[in-house]
Computed example of a mutant assay.
Amino acid sequence: MVPGEASILSNLRRGALEYCVLALLQGGSRYGLDIARTLTRDSVLMSGEGTLYPLLARLRKSGLVQTTWQESAAGPPRRYYALTDDGEHALAAFTRAWHPFRDAVDATLEQRAGLT
């Protein structure tokens, strides 16, 4: 990674990670480790599991997700996270804002690339 790249990636993650979690929950409830595995798959969205559980706790406290405990055949009970109606609304608002934002960033970067 180029110097400064880690800081840029950290800032980008900070703004989008909670909405990525909400998007993963849109298809149904999931347990924490499953969410973590999905988000760390390529180390771009999340580099390790350590940031996920505090984020999930914040999402729960803010009413965007709800939790339930379910028995597991593979070990102790697991906490499953599911999207609430408020979480659905927050994800929809982010999606409406994200697409034009992403397109504007892409257009600016492409325009800049054309100047060099």
Score class of each variant (00 low, 15 high):
residue 80 Y to W: 15
residue 82 A to V: 02
residue 75 G to P: 08
residue 14 R to I: 05
residue 26 Q to M: 10
residue 21 V to I: 07
residue 24 L to K: 09
residue 69 W to Y: 05
residue 57 A to W: 14
residue 22 L to V: 01
residue 89 H to Y: 10
residue 76 P to E: 15
residue 116 T to K: 13
residue 88 E to H: 13
residue 79 R to H: 06
residue 113 A to N: 06
residue 103 D to H: 13
residue 10 S to L: 10
residue 105 V to P: 07
residue 82 A to F: 08
residue 100 P to C: 01
residue 106 D to L: 14
residue 34 D to R: 10
residue 85 D to H: 11
residue 2 V to A: 13
residue 36 A to T: 13
residue 32 G to D: 09
residue 107 A to Q: 12
residue 55 L to R: 09
residue 28 G to A: 05
residue 50 G to I: 00
residue 3 P to G: 04
residue 1 M to G: 15
residue 64 L to I: 02
residue 99 H to I: 11
residue 63 G to A: 05
residue 35 I to P: 01
residue 65 V to W: 04
residue 47 S to E: 11
residue 109 L to C: 02
residue 51 T to E: 10
residue 44 V to F: 10
residue 28 G to N: 01
residue 110 E to M: 07
residue 66 Q to F: 15
residue 14 R to T: 08
residue 68 T to R: 15
residue 23 A to Q: 00
residue 42 D to Y: 09
residue 101 F to G: 02
residue 44 V to S: 00
residue 44 V to Q: 01
residue 97 A to R: 11
residue 54 P to Y: 13
residue 27 G to D: 07
residue 78 R to A: 05
residue 89 H to G: 00
residue 103 D to A: 12
residue 50 G to A: 12
residue 35 I to T: 04
residue 14 R to N: 07
residue 53 Y to N: 11
residue 15 G to W: 05
residue 39 L to A: 06
residue 30 R to V: 03
residue 108 T to M: 03
residue 30 R to T: 04
residue 56 L to M: 10
residue 70 Q to I: 01
residue 116 T to C: 05
residue 45 L to F: 08
residue 23 A to D: 00
residue 116 T to I: 08
residue 93 A to W: 06
residue 4 G to S: 08
residue 83 L to S: 03
residue 37 R to T: 07
residue 104 A to M: 08
residue 80 Y to P: 00
residue 61 K to A: 05
residue 97 A to K: 07
residue 99 H to Q: 12
residue 74 A to E: 11
residue 72 S to D: 12
residue 110 E to Y: 06
